[in-house]
Design a protein around this nucleic acid. Structure first.
Lengths: 218, 218
DNA sequence: AAGTGGTCTAGACCACCTT
DNA sequence: AGGTGGTCTAGACCACTTA
């Protein structure tokens, strides 16, 4: 058997499963049976169990004892819960980041936003989602709260995966550009209140947009 | 060996380890070696690994591949991160709960608060922490966001365990009573803004108090 | 009452740190 | 190079669901 140096097998399985879940190859609600996974990966059951446990911790998978694992089911209520959680955390991180972010950081945010602009012109939804992710993470990185940032990432992954597949509703990308510019403006002025307001509305609009998209495609 | 019906072994191990970590029997930073745990529980390694993975997902334990597990290290920075995360989530949950909580729910909150009052009179820190937990959870249960509630619980457990052991600084319990009454008052008026403000200050004061306590005892 | 499929054990294996 | 200690495999085991 091929020997992998460095990493453990279960972390590789974890990465591959995570990728398949987020990409939609394993869609929400899909059963993840040991037998199938054992065959697919050509390894024994235990490292797969480890990986599933890990993914359960990340919120991507649910495990019922003695009954097996599934990709987390995504329904309207779950979507709302995630967005409300995200809104709360993003506003807090934004407020913290506002006073700490460097001029270089703000510059970098603008640069990413220009990438988003280009993605909108090219109507490339996947590229928009990627640029959007980097835009927000860049700002929140300056908040100095790696714990909250991790919670945010963890509980956004599934939603972001679906977003990549579904894209945006009509006119939403242009609206996102305006909202991002408002966020940058607030950062420039070092105005936490204005930033929090801009982020709050940005999150609310994202939620509304996503729910519409989700209902259409269900 | 005694056969346990219903639950799995790893979930039992998980519960016992969680209890030991929160109670301080296994203090922050303590190594959790497989060999020791295997002997302690009288079972093989795999279910223990499962339990540790689970606890890592709950934030109580950190695992380095090929290097083993430890009880999560708690330092000043971590304490601040947790409190900022809690503040963000609690304020959001409070706002949501405000419009949904039933008169019976508000009644129940008052009842729990009277238990807190009694605990203060008796100077029973453990009882205060327990009543405080129930007070907040009762309110947030009405927010209809089980996801955010779970994140909140998860990332409060370690801190709450330490709080149970350290108690409060002088005068803080009486202050908590006043702050809780303000929260109940806002619920009665169905005033989300006032409630959010009361919760925000309550969380901030709790953070300050805890950090002082933490520095004293370090 | 049988089948399915998750769970546990024992021991081999090997990555990482110390000598 | 040796030791420590986490990781993986194979197969038995048994909880839970079908009929």
């Amino acid at each position: 058997m091929k020997r992998e140096i460095r990493n453990t097998i279960y972390s590789k399985v974890c990465d591959r499963l995570r990728g398949k879940i987020i990409s939609g190859a394993y869609p929400p609600g899909r059963r993840l049976k040991m037998v199938d996974l054992v065959r697919e990966f050509g390894i024994s059951a235990m490292p797969i169990r480890e990986a599933l446990q890990q993914l359960q911790g990340e919120g991507l998978v649910t495990i019922d004892p003695h009954r097996g694992a599934r990709v987390r089911q995504v329904d309207r209520h779950f979507v709302i819960m995630v967005h409300d959680l995200r809104t709360a955390i993003e506003c807090m991180l934004g407020r913290k980041a506002c006073m700490k972010i460097t001029p270089n950081g703000i510059e970098a945010a603008e640069k990413i936003q220009r990438k988003y602009d280009r993605a909108v012109e090219e109507r490339d939804a996947a590229k928009m989602v990627a640029a959007n992710l980097r835009f927000h993470e860049l700002i929140y990185d300056h908040a100095g709260n790696s714990l909250a940032l991790q919670v945010l990432k963890t509980h956004s992954a599934l939603i972001r995966g679906i977003r990549t597949r579904f894209g945006y509703t009509r006119g939403r990308p242009e609206q996102v550009c305006r909202e991002h510019r408002r966020i940058i403006e607030a950062l420039r002025r070092r105005d936490p209140r204005q930033l929090e307001k801009a982020l709050w509305e940005h999150c609310q609009n994202a939620a509304t947009d996503f729910i519409n998209l989700f209902e259409e495609n269900s």
